[in-house]
């Protein structure tokens, strides 16, 4: 009978984490910024069909970076989770926190028990009636959850973008200012991103029951200024 080689658990975890991080770093980054009327999402994405940002429920949105097929699976599971919960209880009972926990549990399980971790980083965002009720849950490939305030950055270049956003972000930005801050931070100093390179969406308090809306085409070009 052959014995498998002993590999220290620390090594196993480190290898998996490296693998996941490498996969995530291949794709472009994404950020979510809190502004006066809600939360703005900005992603570098040249495709107008393979979305990184999408609607989950009335007040909840999802964003993911990394391997598309994997975060899209997570997105669909989130929509199902939310719709099931809203059907079983009521629309008000659907919240981002329980969804974030469900994602964390799932990602953690995959990270520790499966051959391959998921090469994704996701964001679950919810807006409240007031700015204070806004929530940003940033969930990593291993299931760790970070509850963020002001803004959240996902992807391989997160550190550099966070540093840039730290400078440009201010309290009570309006939509246009928040958009320009987010896009400027994603682009950096050496290049500019146009409407065709971007996927932009908002969760806006001023919208009706379904707060999620995409900003595209001429409206986006106008806001970019």
């Amino acid at each position: 009978m052959s014995m498998p080689f002993y590999v220290a658990p620390e090594q196993v975890m480190k290898d998996r984490a490296d693998y996941a991080r490498k996969g995530i770093a291949k794709g472009r980054s994404l950020c979510a910024v809190s502004y006066d009327d809600g939360i703005l999402f900005a992603a570098e994405n040249t495709s107008s069909t393979l979305r990184k940002i999408s609607e989950i429920y009335d007040r909840i949105a999802f964003a993911g970076v990394g391997r598309y097929s994997e975060f899209d699976q997570l997105r669909v599971a989130g929509v199902r989770h939310a719709d099931m919960k809203g059907y079983a209880y009521s629309r008000e009972d659907v919240d981002a926190q329980s969804l974030a926990n469900a994602y964390a549990q799932m990602l953690n399980h995959t990270f520790t028990h499966e051959m391959k971790p998921m090469e994704v980083e996701i964001l679950v965002a919810e807006i409240g009636d007031e700015r204070a009720g806004d929530e940003l849950f940033h969930i990593l490939y291993d299931g760790s959850v970070v509850d963020e305030d002001r803004f959240s950055v996902l992807g391989g270049e997160a550190d550099a973008i966070t540093a840039r956003l730290d400078e440009s972000w201010a309290d009570e930005l309006d939509l246009g200012a928040a958009l320009r801050a987010a896009v400027g931070a994603l682009a950096g100093d050496d290049r500019a991103l146009g409407a065709d390179d971007l996927e932009i969406a908002v969760l806006a308090r001023s919208n009706g029951r379904r707060k999620f809306a995409r900003i595209e085409g001429e409206a986006l070009t106008a806001l970019l200024g």
């Binding site: 599971a77 199902r80 989770h81 099931m84 059907y87 329980s98």
Partner: peptide, 23 residues
């Protein structure tokens, strides 16, 4: 309520009633 994940052969797709039946 856990996250509803399905293998491709039993995935209900965009059908909500189908999802309810699976659950």
């Amino acid at each position: 309520m856990t996250l509803p994940f399905f293998t491709p052969d039993v995935d209900p797709g965009p059908d909500f009633a189908g999802l309810l039946r699976r659950q």
